[in-house]
Each structure stands twice: as structure tokens, then as C-alpha cells.
Simulated assay, not measured.
Amino acid sequence: MTSSLSIKKLCWFAAFTVLIVSSNILVYQLEALQPVTPAVAVGSLLDFIVVIPLLTYFFVIRKRYSLKYIPLVAIVGYGIAHLIIPAHHLTSYSFLRYILFAGEGAFLLVELYILYKIITKIPRVIRSFKSQTNTLTFEQRLESSSAAHLKSSRILDVYYAELAMVYYSLFSWRKAVSPAPLQFTYHQKTSMIALYVMLIHAMVIETVGLHFILHSISPVLSIVTLVLNVYTVLFFLAHIQATRLCPFTITQHTLHLQVGLTKRLTVPLSEIKQIVRYDGPERLSKQEEKTVFDGLAPDFIREKPAFEIEFYTPQQAKLMYGFTKAITKAHIRPDDPEAFYTALTKKLKEFQNL
């Protein structure tokens, strides 16, 4: 990834995509717009297999990710179009289905091959995973145990992210948070958990209501929406658990910062230039945000960071699904700022005297 993906571009992309999808749904559902001509169906197909992929390229993929994702977006777009456009309008364009399905089949074969390679090496990966009984987080243990047996790839990163989400959302609730002298929580003095509980509550209510409304329009679309909403709820639960179970950690040689499921940073102590009390603006400029690791827990009202940690050279922060971000500073707000500051400065002095 050569440049970071800004929230502004994501918002524009989401807005245009929602506008295209919703307008096409209305065209086929509103009685005032009936009857729909074949030309309208052609326009809808172009929206989903040409316009949306182009929007994806300009707002998401350009100068960041491989062009190989464009055909996958077109395939997904055709699938959505098939759910929205009445079947009798698509009979004249059935050849598009075979072209896109051929591309999907090739992509699926690649995924199946990678999955086969993973399955054949799973026993060795599991043995390596179980042998690591130190304080590494679930993600670190998973990546460390698989690195010796599997070649790194973006698809593997996606599998790791999904596996971490399943683990934290469903199987980590009995895991106790064991306090340690060099581990520091960062969420207990915020309303982060209350915020996500509120979002989960709203999502459940919205899911029930929307499911029944969409079911009368399109049963398939209602099921797809239900699956996406359930996935979102699982993500929120996993994010809560990952935040609880993965505090900021200072080891003998590194500083590990993790913010739930969304981002993490492991930086050698030798790369830390200084830690200072933050005295900057509450909101950074767009340019500054690109090079700063935001280690604050989400909250109803955002507080200023307590500390700014500066590095000698740019460090690589890991985001979900294998995306990365080059950063030169980290902004954090631990629950016990004085204890964290004392522990890190002491560790840096010890490391420098070695």
C-alpha cells in the first residue's frame, strides 16, 4: 500500500455507492416508475458492473492496492444487480453471467488452492501456536506460529482477521484479564464499552425491523442484510473483548500497542526517540493523521491524548485484513498515565545503558 486510505474518501465512496444501490431499488419497486424498459435494466447493469468498480478504483484502490480486486468488485456488483433487477429483464444479458462467473471461478480456485495449502499445514501451525505460552496476543501468536509454515499473503491476512474476530466474539469470554506490572489498560476510564453496547442494541433493533420490511420486497436481500448485521454485531463484540484482553504492553525489547481489532503496533524500544506529555491540538490535520498511530479508545466525547511517543524512523502499524500504515508518532491515553510514563522511561533508560 503506497498511501493511506482517508476517511473522507471512504465516506464519499460509501455515499455514492448507497445512492446508486438505493436509486436502482426504487426504480424497480415504485409503482409510479413502472413499467421499466429494457434500457433501464441495461443502465442498472452498467451501474453495478462498471460504475461501482470505477468508483472503487478511484476512491479505494488507486495507488494503494492491486488492480486484481476490480474483477471481484464487478462480480459482487453483478450479484447485487441480480437481486435487485427482475429476472425477465436479465434474460437478454445472460452471457454476462458466464463471463463474470468464469472470473469468479478462477478467483475461487486460487482461494481453494491457498486453503488447501493451509489445511495441510494446520497441524504444525497448531503445535507452534500451543507452544507459545508467553504474553503474546492472539493475533501475534497466530501470525508467529504460521510464519514458519505458510507464505504470507493478503488472503491469509483476511483469514487471520476473521479468525481473530470469531475467537474474541465467541470464545474469549471465559478468559480472565490477568494484571501484570508492565501491562496498562486504556479503556476503563472511557465509555468505550457503553458506546459499543449502545451500538449493538441499536443494531439488533434495526435488524429486526429492517428484516421484516425488506422481506416483503426481496426475501434474498433481507437475508443478506440480516447476515451483514449479524456480522457487524459479532465485530462489535470482538472489538470489546480485544480491547479488554489486549492492554498496552512493555516487554524487554518492545512496546506493543493494540486498539481492539482495528489496529496494532509493535515497535522496538531502540526505535523510540522520546515520550512526552501531549500538548498539541485536540484534532490533527489530515496530513498529520496519516503518520500518527491513534491509540485512544473510542468514546462518546474524545479526550486529548496523554502522551506522544516519537520514533527515530517510520514504523509499520498493522490494520485489519493485512493493511498497513507508516507512522512516525503514537498518541495514547492509558488509564494510569503516570505508571505508564514511569515504566516506559525506566525501560528506555535500562535499554540505552545496555
Rank of each mutant, 00 (worst) to 15 (best):
T185L: 04
L156F: 08
P179A: 08
Y167N: 15
I155E: 07
I155H: 13
A161R: 00
S172M: 03
Y167C: 07
F171G: 12
F184R: 08
Y160K: 12
A161L: 01
W173V: 03
K151G: 07
S152N: 14
D157Q: 11
S172V: 05
P179K: 03
L150R: 07
L150S: 08
K175W: 04
K151Q: 13
Q183E: 15
T185K: 13
S178F: 06
S172R: 10
R174I: 03
S178N: 10
F184P: 00
S178D: 08
A148I: 02
S152V: 03
A161P: 00
V177R: 14
A164V: 00
I155W: 13
H149K: 10
M165R: 11
P181N: 14
D157T: 07
Y167G: 12
W173T: 03
D157A: 15
Y167V: 07
S153N: 10
I155S: 09
Y160D: 04
K151R: 15
F171H: 12
L182I: 01
H149L: 05
P179G: 04
S169A: 15
S152E: 14
S172T: 08
W173L: 03
P179M: 04
F171Y: 13
S152P: 00
Y159E: 02
A176Y: 01
A161D: 02
S153L: 05
L163C: 05
R154H: 11
F171S: 11
A161G: 04
S153K: 09
M165T: 14
E162K: 01
F184M: 01
L163Q: 07
Y159F: 12
H149A: 06
S153G: 04
P181D: 14
S169K: 02
T185D: 13
A161Y: 04
S152D: 09
L150D: 05
A180K: 11
S169R: 04
L170A: 15
A180Q: 13
Y168K: 05
S169P: 00
L170R: 06
R154W: 09
L182K: 13
A176G: 03
A180R: 10
P179E: 10
I155R: 14
I155V: 09
K175A: 12
Y168F: 14
V177W: 14
A180F: 07
Y159C: 01
V177T: 08
K151N: 09
A148V: 03
K175E: 15
D157G: 05
L182V: 00
I155M: 11
Q183L: 07
Y160W: 13
F184W: 09
F184S: 01
A176E: 13
P181L: 10
V166F: 07
V177D: 09
F184D: 05
L170F: 09
Y167R: 11
A148F: 09
K151W: 10
D157K: 08
T185E: 12
R174A: 08
M165C: 14
